[in-house]
Design a protein around this nucleic acid. Structure first.
Length: 375
DNA sequence: GAAGCGTGGCC
DNA sequence: TGGCCAAGCTT
């Protein structure tokens, strides 16, 4: 049974160690931290935008989108008064489109219910859709220097190595949150959170971490055991299922093509696409396309020549799109399984937000432009 | 708790 | 090439 003196001694010893550890990180950050566009201001709107863009998305990918976005929607009020289609067009290519829909909806909500002022209370920030614990912590620490911990992919990897976590981080979320909260420097939450993320992004990287340059190497159990490349552990994943899809580029007599807007929620919600659907067992591609167009749009078409075949991987399945030119024969297209339908020229199509796989179809059409298509 | 939700880069 | 991962959140 330890007496009070030794207990106090141990406590003060561990406290001084953790203070040294924080200081090491902050000193490193002052020297080696990244200069990122969204760190040049503490304005909550711009930090919010950056935090949402950075969800599951690399910094290098985000930077050009961030600059364009802030140019187009410089304030929360600008975003709130924009059209959703305009917002989705600005997000086109960034993926996880619910992020853009949520940004837009939350901007409107903040204008209506928060007087246009981004909330500073954790519970109110967490109540905004698209903002979870990590994003809330990122915003509140970066914008207001509030001591709210984060646990993003970088921090998970850093902490998993720090304690030589013997299980996949996904199985230890609770413990890792506790650790992030315990380590957080309440005197410098803004710098600390950004520093630990930078450490994960530039030193404690997934493959071949640069341990010799790490300010935490003396504290890192994985490094001191020589197992830093084995951590974080991960569990085996099964291969993505593949769906074969028949897709129609339907032409009318005016030289226009038919596009449809997907339902507002779910996969690629609110984006435009070329219509089509899953190829059933024993069905040819033209048979599939003719059937799907009848079912989804209620029109008759003639399926013509093959345009392009596209392989594309989403987050949880893979598709093979077999795209054919088609000719509209009869019937007025009905939005049976979509929200809206339009006939557009190839010049007009750029105004609409499309998912990546569909922009490849448009590119293929462009490369054929000048060649007159006949069924 | 597990599945749904995009895209680009890397090897 | 296909698998893995990257500043996660929602249902």
């Amino acid at each position: 049974m330890p007496n009070r003196i030794s207990a106090d001694h141990n406590l003060s010893l561990s406290v001084s160690i953790i203070e040294d550890q924080r200081r090491s990180l902050l000193d490193w950050y002052a020297r080696a931290g990244r200069d990122l566009p969204w760190r040049r201001s503490w304005e909550p709107y711009s930090i919010w935008v950056s935090e949402i863009m950075l969800q599951q998305t690399q910094v290098k990918t985000v930077i050009p989108y961030y600059h364009r976005w802030m140019e187009q929607f410089p304030t929360l009020e600008h975003l709130a008064s924009a059209e959703l289609q305009e917002v989705l067009k600005a997000w086109e290519g960034l993926g996880y489109y619910s992020r853009a829909r949520n940004l837009h909806a939350c901007a409107k909500l903040i204008m209506q219910s928060h007087g246009g002022v981004f909330p500073q209370e954790l519970s109110q920030v967490l109540a905004l859709s698209g903002i979870g614990k990590t994003t809330a912590g990122g915003i509140l620490s970066a914008a207001f220097n509030q001591p709210v911990a984060i646990l993003d992919g970088n921090v998970k990897r850093v902490l998993a190595r720090l304690v030589a976590l013997p299980i996949p981080p996904a199985k230890a979320t609770q413990q890792l949150w506790k650790l992030s909260e315990a380590l957080l420097d309440h005197q410098h939450p803004r710098e600390f959170n950004q520093a630990i993320m930078d450490l994960g992004a530039t030193i404690c990287t997934r493959k071949t971490p640069n341990c010799p340059d790490c300010p935490w190497k003396s504290y890192c159990q994985a490094y001191n055991l020589g197992i830093q490349s084995e951590i974080p552990m991960r569990e085996p994943s099964s291969p993505l299922p593949t769906k074969n899809i028949g897709v129609a580029v339907i032409w009318n007599d005016q030289g226009q093509i038919l596009i449809d807007r997907r339902p507002a929620k779910g996969l690629l919600g609110g984006l435009w696409e070329f219509p089509g659907g899953k190829i059933e067992l024993g069905e040819t591609v033209p048979e599939c396309i003719k059937r799907e167009i009848q079912e989804e749009l209620g029109i008759e078409i003639e399926v013509g020549e093959h345009l392009i075949t596209i392989n594309h991987a989403y987050s949880h399945f893979r598709v093979v799109l077999s795209v054919h030119h088609c000719r509209h024969l009869s019937g007025v297209p009905q939005p049976i399984e979509c929200d809206e339908i339009r006939w557009v020229t190839l010049d007009e199509v750029d105004q609409f937000p499309f998912p990546k796989a569909n922009t490849q179809i448009i590119a293929a059409l462009r490369s054929q432009e000048g060649r007159k298509y006949e069924v």
